[in-house]
Each structure stands twice: as C-alpha cells, then as structure tokens.
C-alpha cells in the first residue's frame, strides 16, 4: 500500500495561510492549516461554503501560493516555488480531477489523456501507450477515440481521472468529482476511486456531500479557515 519509493508523507503542510486583498477588504481565507497525509490514504476535505476548503485545495494543488506557511509535497519543499518550477511540480506530483471535467472538447479522449505527457516532454508513441493504459484503468478503452461531447458525464469524469493518473503523480486531487453527475454515475466514480485507492493511489477529495466524504479513510472538516475536525471515518460508515 505504501508509496513505492515515495516519501513517508505525501503531504506535510504546516500553518498554511492565505490572505486576499489589503486593508479594509482584507479577507483571511485560511488562518493556519496544518495537515499530514500518508501515502495510500484517502482524505476527504469537507466544510460549508466560504469555509476555505476550496482555497486549501488550490494551495495543496499548487494552483495558488500560500501567503505564509510551509508545504512539503512528496518530500519536496514546494511553498516557495514560482513560475516554471511550480508548473513542473504540478505536472510531476499532482493529478487534478475537476467538477466540470475541463476536457478539451474537440480532442479525442486519448488526446485529452495525453496532454500532461506532452508538457512532460514524452514522445508520441510512448504517450499513446500510456494514455491507453490509463484509459484501461478507468475502464474506458473502448471510448479512446471519442470526443468529450460524445461521452456521458460519468465517462467524461473517467477520462479526466485517466488524465490525472497518466503522469503517475504522488496524489490525485479531486474537487467535487461527483458534483455534476447523477447518483448512479457518481457512485461509479467513487467505486473507481476505491479501486484506485486499493491499488495504492493517494486521494484528496474536496466535497460538501457527506456521502462522498464518508467513502474516505479520513475526513478533514474546515471551518472559518481552520481545521475544525480531523477524524477517521471508519466508525461513521454504514
């Protein structure tokens, strides 16, 4: 289960803060969040709107920079990274799954999955091979040539998950992955997450849906920019 050759902690965050604006309009979205995540863990991040959970996700996903605090991702200090180094860390360490999929609509599923590998500089034939492997992982091999508009919501999200997996990141970061899906498709995605997690993939899932949160090993509840609760979900399940 533990990450093969990975660091002992996938995420080591200490006192992360994020402040937007200045003076009167100053908003403290995160007031100091510390979080450790071990390899192979499935962590659900929950909290009401405005709690700061989206901000936390952006910081953890290296989509935004913390105002202060220290962030070590897969053993690498990433809180001070900028520009090109940040982009590189993103493509090497993180796989994103968005609520609205964010696939390029005119490219085939396979080409969408290949995209992170293009930026990693992987050559064409190798890209194709790995993209097809990733699509197989999400059970979508037969849809490799289809374009997103020809796929159902659940299938689109599977393509997005394949795209997140293809770079073999340290963790998958999902933001409301079932938010746009009907219950059945949503359960399908969560089952897929379960399979991936069982295979050793570290998962961070940001959600406001208790049922989605309960599928994780651990629930981190964010309120007013702070960790309000951080507990095992085992007892709560069923």
């Amino acid at each position: 289960m533990s990450g093969n050759g990975r660091a002992a902690r996938v995420i080591e965050a200490k006192g992360l803060t994020k402040v937007y604006g200045k003076g009167e309009g100053r908003v403290e979205a995160l007031a100091g969040v510390s979080l450790d995540v071990a390899p192979g863990e499935w962590v659900s991040v929950v909290g009401p709107s405005g709690s700061g959970k989206s901000t936390l996700m952006n910081l953890l996903g290296l989509l935004d920079r913390p105002t202060s605090g220290r962030y070590v991702l897969d053993g690498r200090e990433v809180s001070g990274l900028r520009g090109g180094d940040l982009a590189r860390a993103r493509r090497e360490l993180i796989g994103f799954v968005f609520q609205s999929y964010n696939l390029l609509p005119r490219q085939s599923a396979r080409r969408n999955v290949e995209l992170p590998l293009v930026y990693a500089g992987v050559r064409g034939s190798e890209r194709k091979k790995r993209a097809l492997e990733a699509l197989e992982q999400v059970e979508l091999s037969d849809r490799a040539a289809h374009k997103p508009p020809e796929l159902s919501g659940g299938q689109k999200q599977r393509v997005a998950i394949a795209r997140a997996l293809v770079g073999r990141p340290a963790m998958l970061l999902a933001d409301e992955p079932t938010g746009n899906l009907d219950t059945k498709s949503g359960v399908g995605i969560l089952d897929l997450f379960g399979d991936l997690n069982a295979a050793g993939v570290t998962l961070i899932v940001v959600t406001h849906d208790p049922e989605v949160a309960d599928r994780g090993d651990r629930i981190v509840d964010i309120r007013d920019g702070l960790v309000f609760a951080d507990e095992r979900s085992g007892g709560v399940r069923e």
Binding site: G61, L63, G83, G84, A87, R88, R90, R91, E92, F96, N102, L103, L104, L115, P116, Y119, A120, R163, G167
Partner: peptide, 16 residues
C-alpha cells in the same frame, strides 16, 4: 482562457 487554465493545471508553464 479556460483552456489555458486547464493546460496550466496539467503542468504547462507560462512559456509553454
């Protein structure tokens, strides 16, 4: 613009 956001999230640098 959104496409640019996706590409950056997937590891494209500004220069890319």
């Amino acid at each position: 613009t959104r496409e640019i956001g996706v590409r950056k999230a997937l590891g494209a640098t500004n220069a890319d």
